[in-house]
Amino acid sequence: MRSLLLAVLAAYLIAAIHSILAFVNKRRSLQRVAQWSTAVGFALHTCALIADWVIDGHYPLFGLRETLSFLAWALVALYSLVLYRYRAQALGAFTMPLISVLTFIALIIGSDSGTAPAAFSATWLFPIHTTLLIFAYAAFFIVFIASVMYLLQERELKLKTFSAIFHRLPSLTTVNELATTAGAVGLTLLTLGIVTGMFWSSTRSGRIWHNDPKEIFALLTWLLYFVLTIYRSTANWRGRRAAWLGVVGFALVLCTFFGARLLPGYHVFG
């Protein structure tokens, strides 16, 4: 298991280094290496998750190690989709290092102490709840990166001074569209994730709301991305303001993700 994850990390690291080099040197051959090693890493990672599932006998998304590993996997999946759809190669230079770090932390945590209580694997609602939310977080990360890219370029266009990074980022329209689409996808996933969470909670304890910090943050996050999506679709808010909201929103996502670790509450993990 560990050696498989080690191979995954190696592939992601190669991809990260080549993405950064391709970003700096604008070389297509480097980009090809990055994409191939991402694909290899993703395939191995999928195997690792399945193996984890089979060996441990529960869905591989419980406890910090599994969560980080799963999040890295979800990010690679979304990043690959974005690459396919938008050809925004520059994204790799930002996402692949983060994915490598997540995988690395998952690797050094080693095994989670204790196994999941039977209650969590008894019904399908719980794994669906967590999976949806992990993908929502990954989508919001894409919104964040695209928004930062937008803001950097918008600033340089307004100031009329173009730095080296300017020529290496995808166009304003591309990153704007990317942020819009990823935001809408993320909001949908978040909504479904919260609803499945409520269902699961009601079947388990009869309550759908526990007032714990994670739930409150999640609600705030949902509101923010709801507002963002509405504004973007009515097009009154375009460009800079929407991009700022995408950045602020991600701070809330981080609070939601880590909130439960720092504050006591009903939810057990990130």
């Binding site: 604008k26 070389r27 266009l157 020529h167 166009s171 304003l172 329209t173 591309t174």
Partner: peptide, 26 residues
């Protein structure tokens, strides 16, 4: 041509318009 950015960015005003347009509208 392929391995360096020697011909990458516009150096005339008329071509700058194209380059700015592509940066904004893709």
């Amino acid at each position: 041509r392929n391995e360096t950015g020697i011909a990458a960015n516009a150096v005339s005003i008329s071509y700058m318009a194209v380059e700015l347009g592509k940066k904004i509208f893709d």
